[in-house]
Computed example of a mutant assay.
Amino acid sequence: MLQQMTPAAIAVLGSCNMDVVAFADRAPTLGETVAGRRFATIPGGKGANQAIAAARAGGAVRMIGAVGDDDFGRALRTVLGEAQVDAGAVRASAEPTGIAHIVVDARGGNSIVVIPGANGTVTSLTAADEAIVANSAVLLLQLELPMEAAIAGAAVARRAGTRVILTPAPVQDLPPELLANVDLLAPNEHEIAQITGIDEPREALRAMLEQVPEVVVTLGAEGCVYGARTQGGTLHVPAPKVEAVDTTAAGDTFVGVLAVALAEGRNMQEALRWASAAAALSVQRAGASTSMPKREAIDAFAALHVAPG
């Protein structure tokens, strides 16, 4: 593993939500009521999750987004601060803080309904926001903010030479003007199937390489598969075998930690292995931000469970 000297500069343009989580043996079907085991409110949102994951992995992270002037918003600011995420560019909105309603089943699977709230007010970047993006090695984007914000952020990053990693969730049409400025697309297997209409992940990955230079598809317990337009074939990185408690934050942990690894100059295979180790650690604990491991834990786990090479 490379030894970090200066923290990698990571910008995150994304959502801040309070996760309202119900734990049950299984999720209810339409019109059905089931008994739950436990309830929790946990700070999250794909943007905040990726920011916290990257900060705990050793990145110097700055977050751009919005929360409401309410208890959930104050709790999110506190959690970001405790993770050493610079939240100075997280705006205060008259809209309430965004909410994610999550049901987690006995196998750790989840279903999620997101209500944007304050996130929906972030439709453009300020000059200060643009400076944060331009002065970072990597910009992390997701689609829980309005599309125009993602398009604007990616365009600023491209002009500045900042690497853009996009998590295309929740799935929606991806405008050409966004994809033109994305360096690495990071969907899960379900998202890339919805985007391309192709169920087989490797085939879907190859189809997406016609639109973006690099794609990594997360496959849950099967790990991830990566491909680049300039290379032939795909690279499969298996996931360490663990007992999953809650998979809610696995994808965001993977992407946040991957961003740090790439910003530090690790090669793609090593970066994917390190990110996979972090994701495997995260699924062994409940919650989103509460489950994300620190750098020392990732290194120790990877040394024991991830094959080198």
Rank of each mutant, 00 (worst) to 15 (best):
L2D: 12
P7A: 09
P7Q: 04
A8P: 06
I10D: 01
S15E: 00
M18C: 01
M18Q: 03
V21M: 10
A22I: 11
R26E: 06
A27N: 05
E32G: 03
I42C: 00
Q50G: 05
A53W: 03
R56N: 06
G58W: 00
D69K: 07
D71K: 05
R74Q: 14
R77T: 09
T78C: 11
V79L: 11
E82C: 09
D86I: 06
G88W: 03
S93G: 08
E95H: 14
T97R: 03
A100N: 07
H101F: 15
V103A: 14
V103C: 13
V104R: 07
D105Y: 04
R107T: 14
G109L: 14
S111V: 15
G117Y: 07
T123D: 14
S124F: 10
L125T: 11
L125Q: 11
T126S: 07
T126F: 15
A134I: 07
L139P: 02
L140I: 15
M147I: 08
E148D: 15
E148R: 14
A150T: 04
A155L: 14
A157W: 05
A157H: 06
A160T: 09
V164W: 09
P175G: 10
N181Q: 12
N181F: 07
A186K: 09
P187K: 10
N188K: 02
A193E: 10
I198T: 07
R202A: 11
R202S: 07
E203A: 14
A204M: 00
L205W: 10
M208K: 05
M208Y: 12
V212T: 05
E214M: 12
E214I: 08
V216T: 02
V216R: 03
L219C: 01
A221F: 06
G227A: 06
G227V: 01
A228W: 07
R229H: 13
R229A: 12
T230F: 15
G233Q: 11
L235V: 01
H236V: 10
V237E: 09
P238N: 06
E243M: 11
A244F: 05
V245F: 05
D246F: 02
G251W: 07
V255R: 11
V260F: 00
A263I: 07
N267Q: 11
E270G: 08
A278Y: 04
R285H: 08
R285D: 03
A288M: 05
R295A: 08
A300P: 04
F301S: 03
A302M: 08
L304P: 09
H305W: 12
P308E: 15
P308I: 13
